[in-house]
Design a binder for these strands. Structure first.
Length: 213
DNA sequence: CCCTGATTCGC
DNA sequence: GCGAATCAGG
């Protein structure tokens, strides 16, 4: 069969689409091809995104092609100022409580990391994945990334520059509910999170000077 | 070449 | 309805 396209998938498609993510990116996150994404989006009727091209079907008057330089990734972030890098009290993400507080089995991406070291292996907030029993964890994506790179096979060597995800894995919204999604912003090199969320995920060790020596 | 989205058309 | 194939611009 082709694809489920359940209410939830469609909801996620809509959401990601609205976030301005590229079709390919959405496809990766939804585990479908960009074609599927485009096709579905087209059928759904949503599609006011800037297109890189304007196909001239017939005698359509060539409209001015809007800018398409950077439609995807980070359209809303940027407010993150380095000045805050002092006491990351890491309160839950403004949008949800899923990521941060879960000391039970899922050490928060902040405090827990601090106890160990300079945050080498941060526990991803994706621990939410445990809670959401229906979402493909971000961790599942790397496999896709490799799989979806046919040309990579032609290259025996070459370092896959995208070791971690191409998009921030920080969960936003309530897992299991329509609208839930991962941040999707451009992550820091080697990190699964964007600059903004990396600050929440990685806590500096320097500030815990009141214990240990 | 890479990326992007758009459309077509067999299924 | 679905999405691979194909097209086409940056």
């Amino acid at each position: 069969m082709a694809m489920e396209w359940t209410e939830e998938t469609i909801a996620r498609l809509r959401d990601l689409w609205q976030q301005g993510l590229s079709t390919a990116e959405i496809g990766r996150q939804l585990s479908v091809t960009k074609n599927a994404v485009v096709g579905k989006a087209h059928r759904l009727g949503l599609k006011p995104r800037p297109s890189p091209i304007r196909r001239a079907p017939k005698g359509a008057p060539a409209e001015a092609v809007a800018d398409t330089s950077a439609p995807a990734a980070v359209t809303e972030s940027a407010p993150v100022a380095p000045s805050v890098a002092k006491e990351e009290t890491v309160s839950a993400p403004v949008v949800s409580r899923a990521p941060a507080p879960q000391p039970e089995k899922a050490p928060a991406p902040s405090t827990a990391a601090a106890t160990v070291s300079t945050a080498t292996q941060p526990t991803s907030p994706a621990s939410a994945g445990d809670a959401l029993t229906s979402e493909p964890e971000p961790a599942a994506r790397p496999a896709r990334s490799q799989a979806r790179a046919p040309r990579s096979a032609l290259r025996p060597v070459s370092e896959p520059r995208r070791r971690s995800s191409q998009s921030c894995c920080w969960p936003l919204g309530d897992p299991g509910t329509p609208g839930f999604h991962f941040c999707g912003a451009t992550p820091l090199p080697g990190k699964p999170y964007c600059a903004e969320h990396a600050q929440l995920a990685y806590v500096k060790l320097r500030d815990r000077r009141d214990n240990v020596a």
